[in-house]
């Protein structure tokens, strides 16, 4: 006898109506479609917001943008693992599929979180290359091609927040900025023009909530969806800040 019942996919979604509301779980059953991912399933629920008990409910809130794992906006905890929902294929996930927001960040609503702290950290560590002046500063020194290729790997960071979610030292009791902005310091310090502000960035991450808060659990490097060598960056910065602290304490060229 042939299977007549349509294959279904079950989702258990952690929901929260407002930033301070108590979270609750809601189950949804959807008809299976080939090549479904978590976002297409969430879109399907949005089209017809009815839970598995047949009750009409509000559509689920979540963030998304590029849909190809380069923007980092759609990160959420899927079956206990923080990752991007756009590349989370239903075929590769164990059911029921559990969706939760990354609670390391303030939850805005349902699966949507506020990652502002990461962007604030990038501002704090001056994760850019200053090229503005009152006159034309010229083209600047060249970057060797080999180094550019190496730095490209560090530049893949999309500020998605997965490393902060995985880090045991990023939590409500600490003000650790987390691995992502630290690795950006290494990236911008490696650039021949960015290097001109190297000391400023190092002094910044030697401040409170900075580099020294790393406890070497190395969850970040294991969890990074882009495979960025975050712990190598942290160790390299540990070396740089060691030299920087000796320079500024004993007195030498501090910049």
């Amino acid at each position: 006898m042939q299977e007549t019942q349509a294959k279904t996919v079950t989702f258990i979604v952690s929901r929260q109506d407002s930033p301070d509301a108590t979270p609750y779980q809601e189950e949804f059953k959807l008809e299976y479609r080939p090549n479904m991912n978590v976002i297409s399933a969430l879109m399907e629920i949005r089209r017809n917001p009815v839970n598995s008990k047949g009750e009409s409910t509000t559509p689920i809130n979540w963030d998304m943008n590029c849909l190809e794992e380069v923007c980092g906006a759609c990160s959420m905890v899927i079956n206990g693992k923080p990752r991007q929902s756009c590349t989370a294929l239903v075929d590769q996930l164990e059911q029921p599929i559990r969706l939760e927001p990354m609670r390391t960040f303030p939850v805005v609503r349902d699966l949507q979180v506020d990652r502002s702290r990461m962007f604030d950290s990038l501002k704090k560590v001056k994760a850019w290359i200053p090229i503005d002046g009152t006159y034309d500063l010229g083209p600047g020194p060249r970057m060797p091609e080999k180094k550019r290729q190496w730095a490209y790997e560090l530049s893949k960071c999309m500020t998605c927040g997965v490393c902060l979610e995985a880090c045991p030292n990023v939590n409500s009791k600490s003000d650790f900025i987390g691995p992502a902005p630290l690795s950006q310091v290494r990236l911008f310090n490696a650039h021949p023009t960015g290097e001109m502000n190297k000391a400023e960035r190092l002094e910044q991450i030697m401040g409170d909530g900075g580099l020294a808060n790393c406890g070497n659990s190395q969850n970040c490097v294991q969890s990074c969806p882009k495979g960025i060598p975050l712990t190598t960056s942290i160790a390299a910065l540990n070396r740089d800040t060691t030299f920087q602290s000796f320079k500024s304490f004993f007195g030498s060229d501090t910049v």
Partner: peptide, 9 residues
Amino acid sequence: GNREFFYRR
């Protein structure tokens, strides 16, 4: 400014 850094080290 970097008391935490100093204490940790």
